[in-house]
Simulated assay, not measured.
Amino acid sequence: MEGGEPRTLDRFFEGSATAYGIYRAAERMASALGPMEVRVSKSQVSFRRRHGFAFLWRPGTYVKSSVPVVLSLALPYELPSPRFKQIVHPSPGIWMHHLELLESSQLDAEVEHWMREAYGAAG
Rank of each mutant, 00 (worst) to 15 (best):
D10K: 07
L33S: 07
P35V: 06
T18C: 09
L79H: 13
I22G: 03
W57E: 00
Q106I: 14
E2G: 11
A74Q: 04
Y77Q: 07
L102H: 14
G93W: 05
E110W: 12
V45E: 00
R39A: 10
G120W: 08
A122N: 07
A121C: 09
P90E: 06
S41T: 12
A19M: 00
L79R: 13
V111I: 09
L71A: 03
S31I: 06
E27L: 10
V40Y: 04
V67Y: 03
E103D: 15
L56H: 00
R83H: 12
K42A: 08
A32N: 08
P59T: 02
S91G: 13
L33T: 07
E14P: 05
T18S: 05
E5P: 05
P59V: 00
G93I: 10
A118K: 13
V40S: 00
M115K: 12
Q86P: 02
H89G: 09
S31C: 08
L33E: 06
L79S: 03
P90N: 04
F47C: 00
A26N: 01
M1F: 10
W95Q: 10
G123I: 13
S16Q: 01
F47P: 01
G3L: 09
E117G: 14
L33W: 09
P76K: 12
S16G: 07
V70Q: 08
T61I: 04
W114G: 03
L101V: 10
Q106S: 15
E14W: 04
R58T: 01
H97C: 15
R116C: 14
Y62N: 02
V63F: 12
G52M: 05
P76W: 03
S81C: 12
M96S: 12
K42M: 03
S43Q: 13
G123H: 11
A17V: 08
G93S: 15
I87F: 12
G4V: 04
E78I: 08
A54Q: 01
H98A: 14
E5Q: 07
V88T: 15
G120R: 14
F13V: 06
L33F: 03
S46P: 07
E117C: 14
R58A: 01
